[in-house]
Design a protein around this nucleic acid. Sequence first.
DNA 1: AATATTCATCGTATAAAAACGATTAACCAA
DNA 2: TTGGTTAATCGTTTTTATACGATGAATATT
Lengths: 110, 110
Amino acid sequence: MAIHKKEEFSQKEQDLAAFAKALSHPARIAILKMLAQRNECICGEIVDVLPLAQSTVSQHLKELKTAGLIDGTIDGPRSCYCINWKAFEKFNSEFSFLFEKLKTTNAKCC
Amino acid sequence: MAIHKKEEFSQKEQDLAAFAKALSHPARIAILKMLAQRNECICGEIVDVLPLAQSTVSQHLKELKTAGLIDGTIDGPRSCYCINWKAFEKFNSEFSFLFEKLKTTNAKCC
DNA sequence: AATATTCATCGTATAAAAACGATTAACCAA
DNA sequence: TTGGTTAATCGTTTTTATACGATGAATATT
């Protein structure tokens, strides 16, 4: 079957899920960590650090870019990437908003 | 090939990725939202709200439970679920920690 | 001009996720 | 005891993700 039903959920739910999905692989977490520490990175630098082939790293970078979490700039034969903090903040606050409000008033389970 | 290499990343990176993965489907976001609003939910209530079959909802609940984000209690023939706020806070702070520190000092890209 | 770097994309193979119906196990009510 | 709920699990199908090598396009270098 596997007819995907993601579209039947609200836009906010879909957006949050998409954001989480972009973070759902350790390689992409590692990439974001590198970018946070160094501010910007050439693709090759990331390839040198991660235990993955160049094509695989490029694929992960593309996913992060598509999700809007990073920006990429072509610099001669190189590609320079950095974190898109604005998008990051947006999702982070939306994420907090969803759960923060009721956290304190809730007791424990059943 | 698809020999998965997740194990070659640090434990923290793997944990964060696993947390994000649990949130990476709108159905699971919707479930968490329900639990946050109602404090606790019977499985059947969730099934009534989501546009998914009972077996599919059970599967999503299991994933959230395995990831440690929710707790489940058997109550007669029913199953009662609620958010595990402690685990949630732990990941939320770890998540913030990773990116918060450098956010302000960073300029923009390349 | 010829060659080397750099990286994105393509094609492909395998693994995992998503969804459902059917079945099963546990409990409750007649 | 029999029958009805409730929800987890099993088996299956389809889609998506992960990973790589190979190729190709663009820029540098000699």
